[in-house]
Nucleic acid binder design. Structure first.
Lengths: 121, 121
DNA sequence: CATCTTGTTGCAATTTAGTTGCATTTATAA
DNA sequence: TTATAAATGCAACTAAATTGCAACAAGATG
């Protein structure tokens, strides 16, 4: 991957905050810095490189978040949307893949909503 | 709710098969029987009546499935997409809401992929 | 340092899911 | 049978995401 200035801007964004960020949010934030197509493509590359992972949130919007360790396997942890502050974040707990009789489970997405610790304190 | 022929067609569809059906699928299947707007609106009514519930699948598509019992509260059970046969279904097990320290959990969506029992046997 | 190669970007056009307003139709209660 | 409110069809619209192609620029090579 070439270190273009657009790539650096996006990478920096994910290094600044831990939250999961929606593509729409990024496209708007950087609308004067880069084309929306570029945002989509860079995020796509980041995912393939194992830097980010993504999931579909409650609204059907795609969100990206940083991986803890570089890996190409999708991380298995819940994603949480706070109804109060609106931030979506990865919950750093290991969810054990549920075992269902007669099924083979390969991937698991867990999406939660409620109130986060910041908004409760 | 009036028993229109469009409503009966859709209701029949959900009575025929247990699987979760995407709106897109229904719009295509009944494109010569009713307008797509009608599909959206009838499904919306079914949900308000507690006949169906919905969730966003892996692709960001809205899917509807029958409720076991009539209720207006969202059911808490995992949804499963079989990679082989492509069907999405409700897994009839009770998922206990995960408890996360310092968080209040209100809703929980669990989306799984893998292979279903039909495809394994 | 200059130049070449190819990965990357911008732009415009397109696709697709989902929504809205309004005129018309139809289920059903009176 | 008729009135009326609910439901439908249609066309236009919004918004997310994708695609093709020409232009650009990172960084490797000489």
């Amino acid at each position: 991957m070439r270190k273009t200035k657009q790539l650096k801007l996006l990478l920096n964004e994910f290094n600044q905050k831990e939250d999961a960020i929606s593509i729409v949010e990024l496209v708007n934030k950087f609308s004067d810095k880069m084309n929306k197509t570029t945002v989509y493509r860079i995020l796509d590359r980041f995912e393939k490189e194992g830097i980010l992972h993504w999931f579909i949130d409650n609204d059907g919007l795609k969100r990206y978040a940083k991986n803890k360790k570089k890996s190409n396997t999708k991380e298995v942890h819940p994603h949480f949307l706070c109804e109060d502050c609106g931030t979506t974040s990865c919950i750093p707990i290991n969810i054990k893949l549920p075992s269902i009789p007669e099924y083979i489970i390969k991937t698991s997405e867990h999406f939660l909503t409620g109130q986060c610790k910041k908004c409760l304190s």
